[in-house]
């Protein structure tokens, strides 16, 4: 049985522990970094969205043609002369996939650590958090295709393997979410949570289509949009030849003349991304790499809580998850 003692993130929201990410990134061990962030948060409880046949009984349902006769409760039949099917609650833990973008653009940095390092630490934090709750966590790194895939497990030693995979430097080429997300959606037969950590430097049209692969599978999708502070503010002061790390293309840019246009295009891109995620029912979080991980985790938990409340409001407190509700 899982510990159903509900964590109370409200206390954390009231007193958020703020750790400077620059200082945190000085810790060489990613596992320690994740542990430092997660410390203070209680283990969460996740109700499974699946119904199974474990020992915990949920309800009886009248037999209908086509049901498996193995699950007919013969005692009830003896008592009532009616066929009833005995239903149980599936106690399978949350299956969470962490999708980490390892395209070349994730290696960009204007400071001490790159977007990939920040994304790795964030993913490690989430993995550690979920592992402490007994949830199964898997990992997929990708650029234009899935480079490494680790299926969801919740063994203690599995976290170390995950963190080792997260510490790998991005070696991919251009960001292309389509093939890896489509492939991952095909691989997942059970619904679960998918956490996408990427800089989403791809066209909006493709982004909507690519994220749609995951949503179509009924997965609970969370997107962490990671940007470097220099990408957000574009505060260069001298003209230079800007080289695209993914395509190698050179472009002479005078920041003084180009900054306004850059901000305009970036804001439009972010707004469209947020709009796309909203339309698909995806939790969207934009993070600059100088933002503390605590706040990121807090935002994540707050959003999950809101989401659970919304589900319960829709289905009522007595509504089972078998009706399609999602819970954290």
């Amino acid at each position: 049985m899982r510990n159903r003692a509900a964590s109370n993130p409200q206390s954390a929201i009231r007193n958020p522990p703020l750790i400077d990410p620059a200082a945190l990134m000085k810790i060489k061990s990613m596992e320690l970094r994740a542990k430092a962030v997660v410390e203070g948060f209680w283990k969460g409880i996740h109700r499974s969205p699946y119904h199974g046949f474990s020992v915990e009984f949920t309800e009886y349902r009248q037999y209908a043609f086509g049901d498996d006769p193995r699950y007919i409760d013969w005692r009830v039949y003896a008592r009532s002369d009616r066929f009833y099917i005995k239903k149980f609650e599936d106690e399978t833990n949350l299956r969470c996939h962490l999708l980490i973008d390892h395209s070349r653009s994730m290696g960009y940095t204007s400071g001490d650590y790159s977007k990939a390092q920040y994304a790795g630490t964030l993913a490690a934090t989430l993995a550690y958090f979920l592992f402490t709750q007994g949830d199964a966590v898997g990992l997929a790194t990708f650029d234009d295709q899935i480079r490494e895939y680790m299926p969801p497990r919740n063994r203690a030693s599995y976290l170390r393997r995950l963190i080792l995979a997260l510490e790998a430097q991005p070696k991919g080429s251009a960001t292309n979410l389509g093939p890896p997300l489509q492939r991952l959606a095909q691989m997942q037969t059970k619904r679960g949570m998918i956490v996408l950590v990427s800089d989403l430097l791809t066209s909006i049209d493709r982004l909507e289509r690519d994220l749609g692969y995951l949503c179509a599978g009924g997965h609970d999708v969370v997107v962490f949009h990671i940007l470097d502070p220099a990408e957000v503010s574009f505060d260069f002061d001298k003209p230079a030849l800007f080289q695209d790390v993914e395509t190698g293309r050179d472009l002479y840019v005078d920041p003084a003349a180009a900054q306004k246009g850059y901000q305009h295009l970036l804001d439009g891109h972010l707004a469209k991304t947020r709009s796309v995620c909203q339309s698909l029912g995806i939790d969207y979080h934009l993070f600059a790499t100088d933002r503390p991980f605590d706040l990121a985790l807090l935002d994540f938990l707050q959003h999950r809580m809101r989401s659970r409340k919304r589900v319960r409001r829709v289905h009522g407190p007595g509504a089972g998850p078998g009706a399609g509700g999602r819970a954290v």
Partner: peptide, 8 residues
């Protein structure tokens, strides 16, 4: 070196 020139 910049991450992407799509906004430039």
């Amino acid at each position: 070196t910049f991450s992407s020139l799509m906004f430039l």
